[in-house]
Design a protein around this nucleic acid. Structure first.
Lengths: 190, 190, 190, 190
DNA sequence: CATGAATGAGAATTCATTCAT
DNA sequence: TATGAATGAATTCTCATTCAT
């Protein structure tokens, strides 16, 4: 039932945007009264909090799936691919996790924070191992990790908030956006 | 007076986020009646449209200031610096221009679209001239331009939407975030 | 409670006209918050829709009450009397049904349309049977039905929208307006 | 200039209905400021008052045009034709004159009242002369005048407030609505 | 566990009108 | 004669939330 509410909130979020996610509308979708939702969630923020959490758990899982790869550069690239795939496949989750401005501060807490940190630590470890293997010789691990994250986040967020309409040319390139991006990054790594 | 309204809208936008920018609140801030605002702007979207426009004009101006630099790589880096400086100095404008989800479609029009395009064309030209000078030899101009934009946008938007709290370590690095980022990018260019 | 809202809407309609019927005013009359009304009705049109419906149901019922009369001319006259009585006793309903300009088109639908049609069919049947009995020999049923409807509607609507002030003379006549009208119509029928 | 304002008010009234006639909209149509209108008219009611007046003057003129006809029955019928033609050709005027609910009482005054009376007196005179010629032998002049007025008003107001959609059959009849109505009335007169 | 009823607060907008200039 | 500026009062409607049942 919590599930049902969460899924519906997500569905509304996808279909009609942030503003459409009102308690009222969630309730009417699942054919319950608005008051009923309060049996399962303290308030609206609580629902977002939960979704936020779920998102980070999903992303983390996706990223650990890839840690088995032996070659550190390949592993780093796959880590990036996993991140972008997550963002493109779950734009709503991604939006809540990395773009939406959170009203209260409650959200950056508990499990979430931990998940986010663990994801980021994974990235840093992967960069670090690339360095051990002779790449990024003159750079700090933190700096490289940060810029890589920024790059993939940039792509994801421009896409999700629809700022890529400008890019009219080279449809081919954007068809395989993720792979082409990774290839380019691969070329830049030395 | 239009100015006053625009500035107040901006102020509210910064302080309390998009949702807080209501005609009501703008009016009460400047101690006018809500109806008075309609003397100067047709509707709420109109205010955002104007701010949006202003932002693109400002950004474009900042970017052209830098086109005099002769060395193409230095020029490209300065172009990036200008972009990031704009974003860090005018987070509100940047937010409206590149992050906020626009309700109607009216905004992506007229002068704005043109300004955005001209900015992006400048970037592509700079990349292209780097290529002529022997850099990015194996890459497409469009691809490089896109990834560079993504990177700086990633940094700007993570910062503006407050996702950099995670980055606790290396305060030094983030103190000169922009310069360090550009140095790193410089290192990656070949 | 729906009842209370409907009655209050009606009362305002009578007292101050169509424009006075605002959600706000209804609410303040019954000492509820404006939002409460939306628990019972989807929107303003919905209230009018309901009243409109009720009116047609009432009128139709009044008209069927009279169908038992055997003599076709008497029946036709009684049908007219029922119509006029309805209009004079329920000027508010009549106004909504036959005079007010409806903003949306939603109202002319469903049950309402059917009720209106059934009422009119009754009239046509009554005219038709008068014809069978040797009256209106040279006229079309539709034409006669239409002109009779127009006549009673004319009386009702001039009265309801207060255009009879002009008629100063012959107070006696207007005291028994309905009966005198019917007597006159009776005289004209042959 | 008064003319321009009046015509524009009328145009709005026709095109978009009563609610569309706001001072604001009139002003923006004629490309003057709302405040300017107040130079020519005291307030909104004043505009309506004037239109109302004009309507009655027009109608009265149309009716006197017909008084030359010698045969009293033909003259009466032509009088009715003039009335209906006026209503069908100037539905907006007719609406204001005979249907719209007037907020204040100011309107039924001055010249208007006189015009309305003179029109009605004309009708009564015509009925009276029919009586002298041997028609309506058993009826009171006032009663006949009133019922004739009601009939034509019924037709006009059902048409103007769009209640004739019900009448689906006999398109032919309604094509020449006015003439057919008069023919029918002619038949009923004896 | 579920809900019907209720609401205070607030949203964007529109309107007729006034008044100093 | 014309208007820019301003407004108080109103409009419909939505929302998150509470609470007695």
């Amino acid at each position: 039932m919590r599930r049902l509410i969460l899924d519906t909130a997500m569905k509304l979020f996808i279909e009609e945007g942030y503003d459409a996610v009102s308690m009222r509308k969630i309730a009417s979708r699942i054919e319950y009264s608005p008051a009923s939702i309060y049996t399962y969630f303290a308030d609206k923020q609580d629902i977002f909090f939960e979704l936020h959490n779920e998102g980070f758990t999903k992303l983390f899982r996706k990223q650990t799936d890839v840690q088995g790869i032996l070659d550190p550069v390949q592993r780093l690239l796959s880590h990036g691919r996993a991140y972008l795939e997550f963002a493109f496949e779950n734009p709503q989750y991604y939006d809540i996790m990395f773009i939406v401005r959170h009203p209260g501060e409650r959200i950056i807490k508990d499990n979430t924070w931990e998940c986010g940190m663990r994801s980021y630590d994974l990235l840093k470890r992967n960069v670090s191992e690339c360095k051990n293997a002779g790449y990024f010789t003159n750079e700090e691990v933190d700096a490289v990790a940060f810029i890589l994250w920024s790059t993939v986040h940039g792509i994801a967020s421009l896409h999700i908030r629809q700022r890529l309409a400008i890019m009219e040319l080279n449809k081919d390139y954007f068809t395989n956006l993720i792979e082409n991006t990774l290839k380019l990054i691969r070329n830049l790594i030395r």
